[in-house]
């Protein structure tokens, strides 16, 4: 990882696959892209087998465009839908066993700090509600208790989508799923409050209805994790298959849920707030 590994050695361009050459020439390595430029540069994530109209795939697409330094980032995922796209991106991806993503990320981040003491190396965990809050609950919480410097993103589809539609801790109360015919008996877990209590320095909850806001949230979470401690994003990424949402209505559903229970929420500690006030004010001062 690093820019020197991404670039093609002179003279070898004609032997490389076209998609890779495009990625190096027209991609986002080594430059800051604005998410509004999507569709005008070669994106990091490639064709993947996620379902048509999947909004988890959409969130992942915007996530990669928002990474501040993709050439110096490692993404960790686990079993679940997200890994189908995460493993198709030009960013190193590690497949943790189910539930241990945050333990793997903790060790990886510490190792990177030892190996590259003078470089910024970002570690981002992206896993589902099952991987992080059900089966991975213990390791997720303990990585936050230990104040590990990496970002955790939960792409919450409110169901075990890969295995036939079992309810998860994040499924809303009362919802009937294919493998939960009685309806869920318990409330949806409040992951955001858990993250705040466990020591995260930046916490956000978001429904993917605004690409610019997703990008700003991802960027803030990655930058705050570098400097201060664990950060957490809870993203609603509906499963249109298990919740029987017609593909063309997926964005409409995200907008509806945003009004109901997934309104944008952002919380950060005072020191993180001060950090972003300085960081995000700086370019305007230069312009003036």
């Amino acid at each position: 990882m690093g820019l020197e590994y991404v670039r093609i050695s002179p003279g070898f361009e004609k032997y490389m696959p076209k998609d890779y050459v495009d990625l190096v020439q027209y991609g986002q390595f080594g430059k800051e892209v604005d998410v509004q430029q999507l569709g005008q540069f070669k994106e990091l994530v490639e064709e993947h087998p996620m379902c048509a109209g999947c909004f988890m795939a959409y969130f992942i697409r915007v996530f990669y465009a928002a990474l501040p330094k993709p050439e110096d980032t490692i993404v960790i995922g686990t079993a679940g839908c997200a890994r189908l796209a995460l493993s198709q991106a030009a960013v190193p991806f590690i497949y943790g066993n189910y539930g241990d993503t945050n333990a793997v990320a903790s060790g990886l981040k510490r190792a990177l700090n030892i190996r590259f003491p003078n470089k910024e190396k970002d570690v981002v965990v992206m896993a589902g509600d099952g991987g992080l809050i059900d089966i991975g609950f213990g390791m997720t919480m303990h990585s936050w208790f230990r104040r590990e410097n990496f970002t955790t993103i939960m792409v919450d589809n409110e169901v075990y989508g890969n295995t036939g539609g079992q309810e998860s801790g994040m499924s809303p109360k009362g919802v009937q799923l294919k493998m939960a015919p009685k309806g869920k008996q318990f409330e949806k877990i409040n992951a955001v409050e858990l993250a705040k209590t466990a020591g995260c320095v930046y916490v956000a909850k978001i429904s993917p209805t605004n690409p610019k806001r997703i990008a700003k949230t991802v960027r803030r979470a990655v930058l705050a994790a570098r400097e201060f401690g664990p950060t957490f994003i809870h993203a609603y990424t509906s499963c249109n298959i298990e919740y029987s949402i017609p593909t063309e209505k997926v964005l409409e559903d995200a907008r509806k849920r945003e009004k109901q229970d997934f309104g944008f929420y952002e919380w950060m500690t005072d020191e993180v707030k001060e950090f972003f006030e300085q960081l995000e004010r700086a370019p305007q001062e230069v312009k003036a």
Partner: peptide, 14 residues
């Protein structure tokens, strides 16, 4: 283009 879930699919001609 900004809401397509697929990467490098719905593109924009500058």
């Amino acid at each position: 283009v900004l809401f397509c879930p697929e990467p490098n699919t719905l593109m924009y001609h500058d």
